[in-house]
């Protein structure tokens, strides 16, 4: 059984697209994928759009933050969409799908529950492909300045004269 993980507020166009929709993203045309909520879109040049969609889902399953939108995961893996990187990534995605089929699912991205996808990932945790994607996400995801406010992180304060007048000691519950 496939359960759509993000059924919220879909437009008719998006519903129509669900025939090719995959997880958080859908393939909107050759070389083009977009977020299910149409909040973002992305062209691919070297990777198959379906592979990019799988990669985005994999990224979210590795570092799931429910308050972080897909566009940040998409940005985090966009760097693999190059002629140099694509063959290894496509091979990795193929292995991921094969592992999913081995556990009775149609493909990785069509595996409905996160726990089942995580189970597939655990099975390939030591692979070069998994470690490359996971390692890249540590900076690719968390070093996006735009993602910091979603975690409450304020970053630099020098430009405002430091935190000395901006709450460095404002804790009120201790």
């Amino acid at each position: 059984m496939t359960v759509q993980t993000k059924p919220k507020g879909m437009t008719r166009r998006q519903l129509l697209s669900r025939s090719v929709a995959m997880g958080a993203a859908f393939v909107a045309g050759p070389g083009f994928i977009a977020g299910s909520d149409a909040a973002w879109a992305m062209e691919t040049t070297a990777l198959q759009p379906a592979s990019m969609a799988t990669l985005i889902q994999m990224a979210r399953d590795i570092y799931p933050h429910d308050r972080v939108g897909d566009e940040f995961y998409a940005a985090a893996v966009k760097a693999y969409d190059t002629e140099d990187a694509a063959p290894e990534i496509e091979a990795g995605i193929a292995a991921l799908d094969a592992a999913a089929r081995g556990k009775g699912h149609a493909s990785y991205i069509e595996t409905g529950w996160e726990r089942d996808r995580v189970d597939i990932l655990r099975g390939m945790e030591d692979s070069t492909f998994f470690q490359r994607i996971r390692g890249g996400l540590v900076t690719g995801l968390y070093n996006q300045k735009a993602v910091w406010p979603l975690f409450g992180y304020e970053g630099e304060s020098f430009s405002q004269g430091g935190y000395i007048d901006h709450g460095f000691d404002d804790i009120n519950w201790i």
């Binding site: 630099e156 304060s157 020098f158 004269g161 430091g162 935190y163 000395i164 460095f168 000691d169």
Partner: peptide, 14 residues
């Protein structure tokens, strides 16, 4: 004097 800016590991800009 320290301005409680953080980033001590990155070189103190003050």
């Amino acid at each position: 004097a320290c301005q409680q800016t953080g980033f001590c590991f990155q070189g103190c800009k003050w």
